[in-house]
Amino acid sequence: MQRRTTLSLSLVLLAASALTACTSGEDPAETTTTAGPTSEGAPTQNPDWFCRLIASEAVDAVTDGRSAEAREVEAVSTEDEFQCDVVLPTADGDTEVAMSLSMHRNIPGLADELLAEVMAIEGATPGPEHLGVSYIADTLAVSVVPCKTRVGALDEEPPVPYVFVMRAPLDTEGAATGLLDDSLTRLARETDQTYGCSPSLIHENKDRGDQTGGPTGDADDSSVTTAP
């Protein structure tokens, strides 16, 4: 998609509301990859294992029948960012990333940067409304949802942008494109259940015309930025 889109959203106008109505209905199949334990983290059957949110169907599609060889690696784990990589062995004994799922909380400028990246991919289309501002393309899906910064936050505490990202760098033919939002939906639902999220308010506050809102900046900063 070649058109340039302004991504702006005033954090002052965001208020807490439930994601439940947006993500209610039939859940995506509660499956994960078949990969066993890795040296980098807990086994996939651990309910606290971040990698469990990646749908096995998506891994099957993106690995072209090699899902049995796939292994899950907790690539990033900090207070505000998590990332699980699904890796495949290469002929030279190394590994390559076939798919990754990540969450980024209130990282300045990241929402604009990633939305611009996904919208620049030919064929990118808007995702479901329960994912806030979201776009899905071959190899990449991005969702931006305003959520509370902490468990038990008060209603008057402004939400901050959470960016949910699903990458499938090997999937240039788009075999898994239609499945990328499944894992993002699971991630958004779990984040809402823990913190409380407000995806619909992004759309309520979006600019007129072709402009789509996307929150950026720090929690106490109501300034807005625009994508390049």
Rank of each mutant, 00 (worst) to 15 (best):
A98L: 07
P146I: 08
C197K: 07
A227W: 03
D181M: 08
A124H: 02
A75C: 12
D85M: 13
A70H: 06
E129P: 10
L88Q: 02
A98D: 01
V62W: 06
L154V: 07
E96S: 08
T44M: 13
T90Q: 06
T216P: 06
I107S: 08
R66G: 03
V86L: 12
D27K: 15
E69H: 09
R186C: 08
L115D: 04
V151S: 02
T212Q: 04
T149W: 12
Q2Y: 08
D94I: 10
I121V: 01
L88D: 02
A120K: 07
A124E: 08
A91S: 09
D60V: 00
G152E: 14
C22T: 13
M1F: 03
S222L: 13
H104Q: 10
G36H: 04
T33C: 07
A75S: 14
N205A: 09
T20L: 15
D94T: 11
P146H: 01
M1S: 12
T172E: 13
S56N: 11
E30A: 01
V151C: 00
Y195H: 00
K206V: 14
S39I: 05
V151Q: 08
E40Q: 11
L131T: 02
A61C: 05
G209E: 00
S200L: 11
S200T: 13
D27Q: 15
Q2D: 15
G93P: 06
I136Y: 00
R66H: 02
C147W: 01
L140V: 01
V165D: 11
T212H: 02
C22D: 15
V118Y: 01
I54S: 02
S17M: 07
C197G: 00
W49P: 13
E122C: 00
D155T: 11
V144M: 03
A75D: 15
D112E: 09
E30D: 13
A137V: 02
E79K: 08
T95K: 06
E156M: 01
P108A: 08
T23Y: 11
V163G: 05
L7Y: 06
D182F: 15
T149F: 13
L14A: 03
P158L: 04
T32L: 10
A61G: 04
L53F: 15
P28S: 09
L110P: 06
M119R: 14
N106L: 04
L13M: 13
D94N: 06
M166Q: 12
P215R: 00
T90H: 06
G152Y: 07
L154R: 14
L88F: 07
T177L: 11
T172L: 04
T125D: 12
T177N: 06
S223V: 10
P128Q: 01
C22V: 06
G65L: 01
T177G: 07
D94Q: 06
E156L: 01
G25L: 14
L187W: 09
G123A: 01
A141D: 01
K206A: 15
